[in-house]
Design a protein around this nucleic acid. Structure first.
Lengths: 147, 147
DNA sequence: ATCGATTCAATTGCGCGCAATTGAATTGCG
DNA sequence: CGCAATTCAATTGCGCGCAATTGAATCGAT
């Protein structure tokens, strides 16, 4: 394969990944708009629905996002009434994020979203699981050296 | 599979895709920084290196980006001295983007990037081609209904 | 030829992402 | 204990993405 081929846009892995990621987020957008959430906000809610009361640091570790992204995002979720942010008593450097009643209630409204998205991909659960695993593997490989 | 399982972060396709996409861009970042480019700017340069003299509309169709993203990005590339932007003579609504000598010269400096990224993924060219094809297929499926 | 509809790029506004810095709280080493 | 190093969240600054709007140019149907 020549340098030219390598440089050709459509032969590269990253561009399809980048385009597909944005397209997926766009598929979520109208569904999430009904809940008043953006996709990154939805990710934070997914973490909290699974484990209520986590620090900003823990959120960052799970979502691979830093405080520069999370702090303003969490403030918006707080303004929306879905989460509470409070300084930890054990460690005043840390901020604990927890669900409000409204935030917990939102889970039921979000319940139909994952299936709608799976449908939209047109993939079977097996194909989906394989693709997810392959992409996860790629992620681990690519993100490792920079950490 | 239960609703809870569906909602579980790690079972979803979109989050790994989203994380992998950002990780890939981060892998490019230090390499592109040597050229003075961001990843989206690099994508524009890839298009121009393949086909010099394209309209903003054509760029948008190839990269799935709109003028709201492209116009300021192209202005930055122009300030950097890599591209020229001029109103089309045949159709004054359209703006044609073309490479400067400096923009053409940049191609040689970028030649080593794709291979470095492929290396970083640790995948064989066959595995890479298959993953790319699967992701492209996902993209087409997901992006179709919204268009 | 006219005029409403369409097609362009540009603009506005907002929410990420992320690098870099700041400042407060905690840790841990001597 | 004392104090330098570390660990937190917050802040700053910038470049996307994208929805929505604007305004100019072109098209197309009559």
């Amino acid at each position: 394969m020549s340098t030219d081929d390598f440089l050709r846009l459509d032969l590269q892995l990253c561009f399809p990944l980048y385009a597909a990621s944005r397209a997926m987020v766009q598929a979520y957008t109208p569904l999430l708009a009904k809940l008043g959430l953006t996709y990154p906000q939805y990710l934070v809610m997914l973490v909290l629905w699974e484990t209520d009361g986590v620090s900003v640091k823990e959120l960052g570790e799970k979502l691979y996002l830093d405080s520069g992204t999370l702090t303003p995002l969490l403030k918006r979720l707080e303004t929306l009434g879905f989460v509470r942010r409070e300084r930890s008593k054990e460690d005043a450097r840390s901020v604990t994020v927890s669900l409000t009643a409204q935030g917990k209630a939102l889970r039921r409204k979000a319940a139909s979203i994952p299936e709608a998205i799976v449908c939209r991909t047109g993939l079977t659960l097996e194909e989906l699981a394989r693709l997810r695993r392959d992409i996860q593997r790629l992620f681990e490989k690519v993100s490792s050296r920079s950490a």
